[in-house]
């Protein structure tokens, strides 16, 4: 197993009248080299859960283990270090920084690693080629179409060569043809050895044949998808 969650809970506005438990005790595991999908309506807690798995935030209680390391009690400084070597993120709205060129956006996650400029640039160029963006490399990201922006976001997620890819509602801004293309890309990545975790309420995603496992969430609890 790769990721192990034990009774994970997350509260917001703790101790205030509007206290709210977004995740209320989830225990499960995610395996290596699979495509798993978190399914649920908006507000079901899937994004919160994804952000905890992806080291973007810490659970209020419970334990998350990544391989043999407990990450749920790491302070942010070290959580970030784990995150940038292990996880690549693809966001719903792509979240590219306008005003920067395609290649600059892709290299952004690698800046804090202090790599040699030329080898970083090479790595970005290889990814751009792989995703058929080589001729767009110096364009500002505002000029890209939806599908291209999605592919740039994938390149950015891959720049630090992470083991695990996390995609949050990746198809929300894509039409069904582009969505299916995206799923095919994920399948390729999975075959090349990446573990993929998607959150979605889009049937194109969770009914896709490439998805190995679907976990369903409702109001912060798992209702289906035990292995």
């Amino acid at each position: 197993m790769l990721i192990e969650l034990t009774d994970v809970r997350k509260a917001f506005n703790q101790g205030k009248p509007n206290e709210f438990w977004a995740i209320q005790g989830i225990t499960t595991q995610f395996e290596v080299n699979r495509i798993s999908c978190l399914k649920g309506a908006s507000g079901s807690g899937k994004t919160t859960l994804m952000s905890m798995i992806g080291c973007l935030s810490r659970p209020t209680s419970g334990r998350i283990r990544l391989q043999d390391r407990t990450i749920s009690s790491l302070p942010e400084r070290f959580l970030t270090q784990v995150r940038r070597h292990t996880f690549g993120f693809i966001f719903q709205r792509f979240n590219l920084i306008p005003g920067l060129s395609v290649v600059e956006n892709i290299m952004l996650p690698a800046y804090p690693l202090g790599l040699k400029a030329s080898s970083l640039r090479n790595r970005a160029d290889r990814l751009l080629e792989q995703f058929l963006l080589a001729d767009k490399s110096d364009n500002p990201v505002e000029w890209l179409s939806g599908g291209e922006a999605q592919r740039v976001a994938i390149c950015r997620a891959l720049i630090n060569d992470p083991q695990i890819l996390i995609a949050d509602e990746p198809t929300a801004n894509l039409d069904s043809r582009l969505s299916r293309e995206f799923m095919a890309l994920l399948d390729e990545l999975s075959k090349s050895g990446k573990t993929v975790l998607i959150s979605s309420h889009d049937p194109v995603v969770f009914d896709s044949p490439v998805v190995d496992r679907v976990v369903e969430l409702e109001d912060g609890v798992m209702v289906a998808g035990e292995t």
């Binding site: 400084r77 995150r83 993120f89 630090n160």
Partner: peptide
């Protein structure tokens, strides 16, 4: 809002508070 989002993106893609 634009600058705030920019910093949010940096944090999300792997920049640390200190960085």
């Amino acid at each position: 809002a634009e600058e705030r989002k920019e910093i949010g993106i940096l944090k999300a893609v792997g920049w640390e508070t200190g960085e």
